[in-house]
Design a protein around this nucleic acid. Structure first.
Lengths: 189, 189
DNA sequence: ACCGGTCATTAACATTTGTTTAGATTTTAC
DNA sequence: GTAAAATCTAAACAAATGTTAATGACCGGT
């Protein structure tokens, strides 16, 4: 709870009263390892703020294979935000990779924030800009670096990920097969 | 000019006076085909709104090869927005592919908007959310569809692009060689 | 109308990446 | 503690994609 406090105060100026009113609309929840925070096909009605633990987001491709498209760490927001924004069935599932505690921010809380927080829209803008930077960087990496280079750099984006996530999920994130990633590592030694 | 008018009014509610004050800080500019709206290495100090024409954004990879990472059409905003936000040298160049007219929105105008427009932050949030949706969709396509499928779908994202952009730039956008794209097309016939 | 450059296609060949299978090790669940 | 599952590596082979080079069509500028 304090973690979300600190994160919000870091992003915008917000009074104690505003903060309390907002947090009164949220609640805490803990998921066991491998539990799902949200499922593909459901319309996303909440945004999670991770206070401890780690999640991955997955998607199913045209051939029925699952891909890990994203990792989310402590201090980050996670949802199928496209589903949340547009109210379409989510294409992603979000799964805890460790025991993971989150603050659940229901749609009501978000909407209340935009309507009643003095800097609610600024908060939304700042978070959206943050994800713009993340996506833009990720896209550039795709064009600029080889898979081997992207593997070498991944810990800069997801600190300590090698100790927390199986390698085949990292390979999936990079868009290559686990066998191939193993090969690339061998080559770079 | 009317086009930016209409786009802004579509995104937020804004009074005539606010709109005029904001637009007074902007100006129109026209680029010839092949001219550069902005160059890699410079810090982006303005956002362009395309009123007519078409641009591409390019980036240079680790081996010195140029890639087309993005197209922008009439009615869209374009910049190296990461450079604009963080004030780092831009990694992208933006080039007109046809004669292209834009409204130039300098940093001063954007900042004025956030400070003085009643819904300035909401505007920023909405635009950032729009790009979130674009990037998220693009990322999912990368995992879910084959290059051939992505080629087939590209006109849904960039209407009429096949008649306006050379095929090798589309191949570059898709992340494949022009020779390979030609092969894929042959196979699907 | 011409000329030079850009562009799309094709073929041959090289390289990268995926798939399958197997084996050894580690982790997880009960 | 033990059995089952998950994980990583390895090798052999298959498929996808890149590279180079050649050709002809098309386009833009003069």
């Amino acid at each position: 709870m304090e973690k979300l406090h600190a994160t919000l105060r870091h992003l915008i100026s917000i009074s104690d009263e505003e903060l309390n009113d907002f947090l009164a609309l949220c609640y805490e929840k803990t998921f066991a390892a491998k539990a799902f925070l949200s499922h593909q096909g459901e319309i996303s009605q909440e945004i999670f703020f991770i206070t401890s633990g780690l999640t991955r987001s997955t998607i199913i491709d045209h051939a029925g294979n699952e891909h890990t498209i994203h990792f989310s760490l402590e201090g980050q927001f996670i949802a199928d935000y496209t589903s949340f924004l547009v109210s379409t069935p989510s294409t992603n599932s979000v799964q805890a990779l460790e025991e993971t505690s989150v603050m659940v921010m229901p749609r009501k809380a978000i909407e209340w924030g935009y309507a009643h927080l003095a800097q609610g829209d600024k908060l939304g803008r700042t978070i959206a800009e943050f994800y713009f930077l993340y996506f833009d960087n990720r896209l550039k990496n795709q064009y600029v670096f080889t898979p081997a280079q992207r593997y070498e750099n991944i810990a800069q984006i997801f600190p300590n990920i090698h100790n927390r996530v199986p390698q085949h999920m990292i390979a999936s994130y990079l868009g290559i097969s686990p066998v191939h990633l193993s090969r690339l590592k061998k080559g770079s030694r």
